[in-house]
Design a protein around this nucleic acid. Structure first.
Length: 560
RNA sequence: UGGCCUAUGGUGUAAUUGGCAACACAGCUGGUUUUGGUCCAGUCGUUCUAGGUUCGAGUCCUAGUAGGCCAACCA
């Protein structure tokens, strides 16, 4: 095996550089820090694969740390869902942490800051403070409470902690620089009063630390070497470093924050807030609706962890704006499913075919391979009889030479069965074809080795025996949004681009071998696409989700 | 009007750190095929602009242009 020249992304270059400049691999430690206020989506997969991938690469621990500093939005349900998703993607965290584990330490440090004159209690309303904050082009002005005594601040902070103040009346602020060109440095809030029940600390606290005060210090407590986040936090780095400077012990490792661009996926939204909106407004059935860009939605849709990891690998990590076409994600799921999915036959839009010269009442069990990509997958038997279903699209009374399917007077191969010839068809009063009459060549049976069976006919159709067909609910999905980038229009809300036809529920007719299919099972309906059994499925009523269609060059030709 | 970040084929990402611009997807041609799938072969097409440094610039410098981010008691 020749060692291919490894190409690293800029984050990996940073780590390599640090290793060259004195870090040892023992120093390396990473973390994935979700806020438990929603479900993970495909964008998080990039962050997960980045951090856990680095852990694997350097054999370094990776913590799963819940950034749970806002009890108003965070719930245990989300914690559970996030853990499930990370595991499903195939990663193992070193330790499970919570920012709330550090509330006491954070509080103690805050007292120190007050004692050093670097933090103060402000009693103004948020409106007034916002006004004093200035604008990006104009400096802010100091709060009248900025210079009160340390004793006063200590007492005020104590009262905040003791629950003597109402929400919104008092905050603890870092005393930095109200004229900084970085708005975040204009005396940022460290603590606010919140009389809310926290999912872990319950009512122990009624003051809660803000993100900036919490995140870097949590990294430091855990001795995380590299703290990666998305670009919108770039301006926070200065604050991250300032807060670190206040508590750092130079003998300990100093975490560094670096930022990368979030991945945008076309025809969807990749934002917890917007996904929550879809859930709350019942545009979808839940966080795990198969149309959602959540990991749980993709899982239910039939995506495999491998396919998502491969996708994330090829889209890489960088700092520029991007819009990745969903077709790349679809490529990766097809690539994996092609290798692992058993092939079966199902007809989703049926028209009946009667083989007039086939004996009435007779049933033949035909051998067919389970997966041409995997010879060890073996074969199974499928029933053939006088009446079968084929797809409506697979028959035309008249068609040109480019149409490789069934037409009057023409022949096709029935997959793993016989060659049939269309002789006539019947229609209802509206002109819809209701039945096709065919004859078959008894000597053309697949695999029989006869001269007739070896004949080349251009088309091969999938089919199911009418008498043996299993009926199943099949859910067909299309993109949730009609616009490739629904949430980037300045004058339009992303909800205006919702695709009204993103879900179509039909009844499909499937080969009987599918009768025992279990939720999560994945198959390829030949010539149609990849499908998986939905959790809603029961033994009485099978329910399939369409994961993704096969590449369809015929459809492409037709649309020209 | 301020600050920060970014700019490489249609899309995404590389380029041994200053040394022949490449990989994947998409597109197009053809071949194989009992899935119009898979697979195989071929093909199209790229460094935002203008200066500068250098034997040599996608890479460094300057200016410009374009896009993104920044004024929540959210993260």
């Amino acid at each position: 095996m020749s060692e291919a020249v490894e190409s690293l992304n800029f984050i990996e270059h940073i780590v390599e550089e640090d290793l060259k400049n004195g870090y040892s691999t023992q120093d390396l430690r990473f973390r994935f820090p979700p806020e438990p206020n929603g479900y993970l989506h495909i964008g998080h997969a990039s962050s997960i694969c980045l951090n856990f991938g680095l852990g694997l690469r350097y054999n370094a621990p990776v913590n799963l740390r819940f950034d749970d500093t806002n009890p108003a939005k965070e719930e245990q349900e989300y914690v559970d869902a996030i853990k499930k998703d990370v595991e499903w993607l195939g990663f193992k965290w070193d330790t499970e942490r919570y920012a709330s584990d550090y509330f006491q330490q954070l509080y103690d440090w805050a007292i120190e800051l007050i004692k050093q004159g670097k933090a103060y209690v402000d009693e103004q309303s948020s409106e007034v403070m916002a006004e004093q904050k200035g604008t990006p082009t104009q400096p802010g002005t100091n709060s009248p409470f900025r210079d009160r005594s340390i004793e006063e601040n200590l007492a005020g902070f104590q009262k905040m902690k003791d629950g003597e103040f109402d929400e919104g009346t008092h905050v603890l602020r870092a005393k930095i620089d109200m004229s900084s060109s970085n708005m975040l440095m204009r005396d940022p809030i460290m603590y606010r009063v919140l009389h809310k029940v926290h999912h872990r600390t319950n009512t122990d606290w009624c003051i809660y630390p803000m993100y900036d005060w919490t995140h870097g210090e949590s990294d430091y407590i855990e001795q995380v070497s590299h703290s990666f986040c998305t670009l919108e936090f770039a301006m926070h780095r200065e604050l991250y470093d300032w807060f670190l400077d206040q508590v750092i012990d130079v003998k300990k490792l100093r975490p560094k924050q670096r930022e990368f661009a979030r991945r945008n996926l076309s025809h969807t939204v990749v934002s917890k807030r917007k996904l929550l909106q879809l859930v709350e407004q019942n545009v979808v059935t839940g966080w795990d609706d198969p149309r959602m860009s959540t990991l749980s939605g993709l899982r239910r849709r039939g995506y495999t962890p491998e396919s998502i990891r491969n996708f994330v690998e090829t889209i890489g990590i960088a700092k520029r704006d991007n819009l990745i076409d969903v077709s790349l994600l679809e490529f990766h799921v097809r690539e994996h499913l092609n290798k692992i999915s058993p092939r079966v036959m199902g007809v989703l839009d049926p028209v009946k075919v009667v083989i007039t010269n086939y004996p009435e009442g007779e049933v033949e069990w035909l051998d067919t391979e389970n997966n041409p990509e995997d010879s060890s997958a073996g074969t199974r038997q499928i029933p053939f009889s006088r009446e079968i279903y084929i797809e409506k699209d697979d028959f035309k009374e008249e068609a040109n030479r480019k149409f490789f399917r069934l037409k009057l007077g023409g022949e096709v191969r029935l997959k793993s069965g016989y060659i049939i010839k269309a002789e006539s068809c019947t229609k209802d009063t509206d002109g819809n074809i209701t039945e096709i009459q065919c004859t078959y060549d008894p000597k053309s049976k697949s695999g029989s080795g006869t001269e007739e069976s070896l004949r080349k006919v251009k088309g091969t159709l999938h089919w199911v025996s009418v008498a043996h067909a299993l009926q199943a609910e099949v859910r067909l999905y299309d993109r949730l949004f009609t616009d490739e980038s629904p949430d980037t229009h300045k004058d339009k809300d992303f909800m205006e681009f919702i695709n009204p036809d993103s879900l179509k529920v039909i009844t499909g007719f499937l080969e009987p071998s599918l009768s025992g299919a279990k939720p999560g099972d994945r198959v390829q309906f030949q010539r149609l696409g990849y499908f998986c059994v939905d959790p809603d499925s029961t033994t009485e009523k099978l329910v399939f989700n369409k994961t993704v269609g096969l590449r369809d060059t015929w459809a492409k030709l037709q649309s020209k």
